[in-house]
């Protein structure tokens, strides 16, 4: 479904990504794990067109999207829930959600999808008229995910959904990620919380200082000594 080939990204003289290649098949949850500054967010932002790569290509459903503008990529069914949640703080929850469906015009279907998204995140229903900036961290994360879902993506890019959240909320969020996937949405999940990410994902890539160092089945990676030592705090 998505194939990233030999991606290189530079911020001025600093090279953030070297030769990153990864693949996401239809129906999968693929996670990209790695520590701070490894280039996870850069990878996601390059895929969604927010950053221009220096080299390499991104192919989505057989179409080269490397040079497309972000809004064109969203129209193809690739939605992102940005890092730091990126909700619009001075807008209500309701308005945030309608911006999620921004590229669509099928009002009846949008209304249905909105209902569905609210049933996944019942907390948001209670807060529809509240300004998004006044929500708690977990609620903002839920809003960001619900908003991305309203774009009716075929491929959902999630950037650090667990960032800064209480463990219990993290559990809820990951359960919902699994539910969304079970309904047929393919997910590329970027996470620092390797433990949780490897639990829900089918396959995983490990990113270290801008390079993919390990890849494979999520369960196998979770069991491997290198990953356990580096990311799972295991011995």
């Amino acid at each position: 479904m998505l194939e990233v080939r030999s991606l290189a990204v530079k911020y001025g003289a600093i090279q953030a990504l070297h030769d990153v290649s990864l693949k996401v098949e239809k129906g999968e949850i693929v996670t990209l794990i790695g520590s701070n500054g490894a280039g996870k967010t850069t990878t996601l932002r390059t895929i969604s067109g927010l950053i221009r790569p220096a080299a390499g290509s991104i192919v989505y459903e057989g179409k080269d999207i490397t040079r497309l503008a972000p809004h064109e990529i969203v129209k193809l069914g690739l939605a992102q829930s940005p890092e730091g949640r990126g909700v619009f703080p001075q807008m209500t929850v309701e308005e945030n959600l309608s911006l999620g469906a921004y590229t669509r015009s099928d009002h009846a279907q949008i209304a249905k999808d909105r209902e569905h998204a609210l049933s996944l995140f019942p907390r948001l229903r209670e807060r529809l008229t509240q300004l998004a900036g006044t929500l708690s961290g977990g609620e903002q994360q839920m809003l960001a995910m619900a908003r991305a879902l309203l774009a009716k993506p075929k491929l959902l890019l999630l950037d650090e959904p667990s960032l800064g959240l209480a463990p219990q909320i993290v559990q809820t969020i990951f359960k919902i990620i699994r539910d969304i996937n079970a309904e047929g949405t393919t997910i590329l999940l970027v996470e620092q919380n390797a433990h949780m990410a490897l639990k829900v994902a089918h396959r995983a890539y490990v990113l270290e200082v801008g390079r993919i160092t390990m890849q494979g089945d999520a369960k196998e990676l979770a069991a491997s000594d290198d990953v356990r030592k580096a990311y799972l705090g295991g011995h």
């Binding site: 067109g49 972000p70 809004h71 969203v74 939605a79 829930s81 619009f88 921004y102 590229t103 774009a151």
Partner: peptide
């Protein structure tokens, strides 16, 4: 950036 990510 979030706005661009929404497809605006």
């Amino acid at each position: 950036i979030a706005s661009e990510a929404m497809g605006v």
